[in-house]
């Protein structure tokens, strides 16, 4: 009897608390901003641009042939988070990445030509020293996984929709 009353009370309390907890999850208007379109027509080969998606930077990199070769030449079995370059792109020339270090969420350097791009010429996170290669894969440092590739599609040759 005590048990039944207690269980019923606990269930009721949990149900009453749930709206309070769930209200802290992203609100409808926050969720509504979850896709953006980026214009790629002005991006030159070798240029990297940053667009903002869901409050976070997204890196779009029009890679040079050299960068592409470096990314494809890697022995995948030696990587911490093994992925071939082909698995990470739709069109090999265009690399699209969420610009958030998978360690603790800093924005890696490398978008500007003058930035330190790390030992593999991709991106370098200044916070705790993670190095990413020209495919955005983790090569050295504390980050556990590769830079995330967001869901995206090419609407036409010069427009990409992210999200």
């Amino acid at each position: 009897m005590y048990l039944a009353t207690g269980a019923f009370g606990a269930l009721g309390a949990a149900l009453a608390v749930w709206p309070l907890i769930d209200s802290m999850n992203p609100a409808a208007d926050t969720l509504a901003l979850s896709t953006i379109e980026a214009d790629l027509s002005a991006v030159e080969t070798g240029q990297r641009i940053t667009v903002k998606w869901r409050g976070s930077p997204v890196f779009i990199d029009r890679r040079t042939d050299k960068q592409l070769q470096e990314a494809e030449a890697v022995d995948v079995s030696r990587l911490r988070d093994p992925q071939t370059d082909a698995e990470r792109v739709i069109k090999p020339e265009w690399l699209v990445l969420v610009g958030i270090c998978t360690h603790l969420g800093c924005v890696p350097l490398g978008q500007k030509p003058t930035d330190d791009r790390g030992d593999w010429g991709g991106w370098f996170c200044p916070c705790h020293g993670s190095h990413y290669d020209t495919s955005g894969r983790i090569r050295k440092g504390p980050a556990p996984t590769n830079l995330v590739v967001p869901v995206y599609e090419f609407l036409d040759d010069s427009t990409v929709k992210i999200g």
Binding site: M24, N25, P26, T30, R54, G55
Partner: peptide, 16 residues
Amino acid sequence: TWLWGGFSVDDPTLNR
């Protein structure tokens, strides 16, 4: 995501 109330630290995070 629940702590942030969004997909990055933003206005909802600041308010809470």
